[in-house]
């Protein structure tokens, strides 16, 4: 079995199942009544945590496959990204239900609008979620074709913005203990720093190549 086959037949199904485990546990705890004293808060926190975790892992795919020269890992990226959106969707839905339905005021969509407008950590979190929506929609093979590889890739760079937004969303909501958001921030800095590094080195090469061509043309 070559690398591609191994990823396709073994690793990808395994990751698919593993990434669903937090959701499975959540469902189990909801039906078992074992979410603790504040189930709404617990669901919101867990789904938020797993959104950031999935986003971070998704952004880790490219650096890992390049550093370890395991190109076939690219086949995991889209699935992980869709999982990130899945958890973000659950997170947003729980938040929206809490604000608009469980508010005790009857259905109040206005409460969400007000919250998004007034509270920076909600504004940032909501923006990050909205940015993920077009990425989730265009995650299908058909959309990749329709947009063309280059344009699709450019669009999907929005995930960088969403991930940074997600980390700030987390950082700004905690009361005093910033350890977990800082850990996410540090990992994200490394993963995005890697990309900046690659781009920087590539730019230098392109420039040098340009000089060589120019020098060749003048001689």
């Amino acid at each position: 079995m070559n690398q591609v086959q191994w990823v396709r037949r073994v690793l990808k199904p395994a990751v698919f199942v593993a990434a669903a485990v937090p959701f499975g546990l959540l469902v189990k705890d909801i039906f078992g009544g074992t979410l603790g004293a504040n189930p709404v808060e617990e669901i919101t926190h867990r789904t938020g945590f797993w959104t950031l975790t999935m986003l971070t892992i998704t952004l880790g795919v490219t650096p890992i496959r390049k550093v370890l020269r395991l190109n076939a890992l690219i086949r995991l990226r889209r699935m992980l990204g869709v999982y990130a959106f899945f958890y973000a969707f659950l997170h947003f839905t729980m938040y929206a239900l809490d604000r608009a339905v469980f508010s005790g005021l009857g259905l109040t969509v206005g409460a969400i609008v007000e919250d998004v407008a007034e509270r920076p950590f909600v504004t940032v979190g909501f923006t990050a979620f909205v940015l993920l929506v077009p990425l989730a929609i265009t995650s299908t093979k058909g959309w990749v074709k329709r947009l063309g590889g280059k344009r699709w890739q450019r669009l999907h760079r929005l995930v960088y913005v969403a991930a940074i937004g997600g980390v700030f969303h987390f950082l700004w909501l905690v009361k005093a203990d910033i350890r977990r958001p800082v850990i996410f921030g540090a990992i994200l800095t490394v993963l995005l720093g890697y990309r900046v590094g690659v781009w920087w080195v590539g730019k230098g090469r392109r420039q040098r190549a340009g000089h060589v061509v120019a020098a060749g043309a003048s001689s």
């Binding site: 504040n38 709404v40 469980f102 508010s103 005790g104 005021l105």
Partner: peptide, 18 residues
């Protein structure tokens, strides 16, 4: 500064109260 104090969730209840 970061959240409303108008309503609260009594633990064990789904709908918030004033």
């Amino acid at each position: 500064p970061r959240w409303s104090q108008k309503r609260e969730r009594r633990l064990g209840e789904l709908f918030k109260r004033a």
